[in-house]
Design a protein around this nucleic acid. Structure first.
Ligand code: FES
Ligand code: FES
Lengths: 131, 131
DNA sequence: ATATATGCGATAATAATTGTCGTATATAAT
DNA sequence: ATTATATACGACAATTATTATCGCATATAT
């Protein structure tokens, strides 16, 4: 439990790689080959990051991806939520219609813990992944 | 991603319930009925907690579970690890033989983040779940 | 034109989680 | 002694989430 997904892992690896190669356009195949990441899954992940303007994409030969300047300002929480939706250790942190809400005796403390975790991820940026 | 399991959710609900009923022995069926938790799965979870001496078990009629005094000192990290094994957002935090170790460019930052999360859970106890 | 690269939806394979069933053991009460 | 209640434990089934693959479309540099 409490695992990040491979999708996020791959994305973080890619972000760091792009940060270390800021001067070049890097195609997906380069990254997937370098780190042994399945190409298609990485491609779709980077597409999502591109549509969120975290990276820029260029099509065609000699095309690829490039990091944007704002990357250093993207928090880990934003990054996670772009790829995986709301960060919550239990669904009922966001979901309003929880069946057990009436009888539930742990909602408040769980939400506090969740706040702490979100706070942690809100105070880290993608720049912190490259150190 | 980053979800706790139902097993842990159920266990936390049970712990809080037992804390609120310290004077009685509470059978699994009471808790499972009160919160709509599948009985068998809760039973096995409480058995694990009993064998770790977090709660005490009494067999036979009028038997059930009872909280121990040391509960307030059990950290959430210990609790999680009893039920789900090592707390790690990625396997390679603990696992030594990661295939990607040579090429991996995010191990150090990921491990730092993991330390922060473990630190968070090490500074909360089961008593904090009952507030 | 052609080769290379991203963009996108559908679907398959795998793994993890969640839940069920059957049986054994202990014990209090009758 | 017998019965009813409760924990203890292992094997298995069902469900869900994650991970990976496939096919086709679009853009663009040469
Ligand atoms: S389980 Fe949803 S509110 Fe507690
Ligand atoms: S993926 Fe295992 S060390 Fe980075």
């Amino acid at each position: 439990m409490l695992k990040i997904t491979k999708k996020v892992e791959y994305a973080l690896i890619a972000i760091r790689h792009l940060q270390e190669n800021q001067d070049n356009l890097v195609p997906v195949s380069d990254i997937s080959a370098s780190y042994g990441i399945p190409k298609e899954i990485l491609a779709k992940t980077l597409q999502k990051l591109a549509s969120s303007n975290i990276i820029e994409s260029y099509k065609g030969p000699a095309g690829g991806y490039k990091i944007t300047k704002k990357v250093a300002k993207i928090t880990l929480n934003d990054f996670f939520e772009i790829l995986e939706g709301p960060t919550a250790i239990m669904d009922c942190y966001f979901q309003d219609g929880c069946d057990h809400l009436n009888s539930c005796n742990i909602r408040t403390p769980i939400n506090k813990i969740n706040d702490s975790i979100r706070n942690l991820f809100n105070n880290l940026t993608l720049a912190d992944i490259s150190q």
